[in-house]
Amino acid sequence: MELRRAFRLNGFVMVGALILLIVAIAVEVHGLHNRTAHEAGSPTALGILLAVTILAAVLVLSGFIVVNPNQAKVIQFFGRYIGSVSESGFHWVTPLSSRRGISLRVRNFETQKLKVNDLDGNPVEIAAVVVYQVVDSYKAAFAVDDYEDFVTTQSETAVRHLATTHPYQTDDAGTPSLRDGAEVAGELTVELRERTLLAGIEIIEARITHLAYAPEIAQAMLVRQQAAQVVAARSRIVEGAVGMVGMALDRLAEQGVVELDEERKATMVSNLLVVLCGDRSAAPVVNAGTLYA
């Protein structure tokens, strides 16, 4: 069954109609009472009219509802779904029906920090924030037991699945990792929309809010990351130093400053690389003799 609009009337119009009905019946009761008193007849007709009046008033009064902004009322008549009212205001619907309020406001919640193994088998801690809204009050009320618990459970399941299908980080530019925030958030949002569609829920946004290695391997991974950064920095330094040495030899040869044989070139290259690649400032040493002495 799909969402449909319930039969409704303006509540203030029905209040006016109820007042007119009560006044008309009161006038009739008063006239009947006078005729009964003069004719000394039975008050049975008067009692029946009063009972019908009270019953009609109760039925009419049971149909009034108030719908707040961004709220829907799901209407059931003796267990049968007859529609929903989402327009805010004072309404009159089918009497003796039951109503269940469903909030249409935008909601958000953050999942617990989940411990799960990533694609590489490394244990990581991950959590996400999910922003959602009810768009189908019928499905939210009847398709699942509790749509809030349903969204919470499906969100945690989707986050676990996301973590197991992506590595925490990778050097391959073509493989997305959990640290690629925008791309991972898009995948999580799409998966959650598919999971919660049957409950009448629209996922507006889902985004990773916490991502870290599990405590038992966090220190080892920190050392690994530091080592990788050191290697990368050293590689960059060596690459730059080799370029500078080559440029120096080319300039000396072009300008004819000095003629260097292969042994002197090797010595010069060695000295320049030590100076350029060393962690500390080099102390200059003046050679007063010859290169070969």
Rank of each mutant, 00 (worst) to 15 (best):
S86Q: 07
T209G: 03
A227F: 08
V27Y: 15
L249F: 06
E263S: 14
G31H: 13
T196P: 03
A241K: 02
H30E: 15
P284N: 07
E110K: 06
G121L: 03
G16I: 04
L260G: 00
G79R: 03
A24R: 10
I48P: 00
Y138F: 13
A163G: 02
S84G: 09
T196Q: 00
L198T: 13
L46M: 06
E2I: 10
P43F: 02
R105G: 11
R179K: 13
R234E: 10
N34Q: 15
T209V: 08
L222I: 10
I48E: 04
P215D: 00
V275D: 05
N271W: 13
V134R: 02
E148K: 09
L18A: 09
I203N: 03
I19G: 09
E156S: 08
R4H: 11
G41W: 04
P95N: 00
G278M: 01
A214Y: 00
T36H: 04
N70K: 14
A37K: 15
G289L: 02
S155R: 01
S42I: 06
A233L: 14
T170M: 11
A218E: 07
N68P: 03
G289F: 05
D136H: 05
V13Y: 10
C277Y: 11
V238A: 10
V230F: 11
F150M: 00
A228N: 13
K73D: 12
E216W: 07
K139I: 02
E254N: 08
A241C: 04
A227C: 06
V231P: 00
T111E: 01
E194M: 07
A158V: 01
F77K: 10
R107M: 11
K139Q: 13
R35S: 15
T165A: 14
F12A: 13
Q169E: 15
V116S: 07
D146E: 01
S88F: 12
E194A: 12
P95M: 00
G89N: 01
G174S: 14
E125S: 11
D279F: 08
M268H: 06
V67M: 02
V74A: 02
Q154M: 10
R8P: 03
R195C: 02
D171A: 14
A233Y: 09
V27D: 14
E259N: 10
G278N: 04
T157R: 15
I217Y: 01
E183M: 08
R251Y: 07
L59S: 11
D172F: 09
T290K: 09
W92C: 01
L96F: 12
V159M: 01
V275I: 15
A266F: 04
D145M: 08
S155T: 04
E262H: 08
R234K: 13
N34P: 07
N10E: 03
G278A: 02
F142C: 02
D120L: 11
E262P: 05
G41V: 01
E148Q: 12
A173Y: 12
R8G: 10
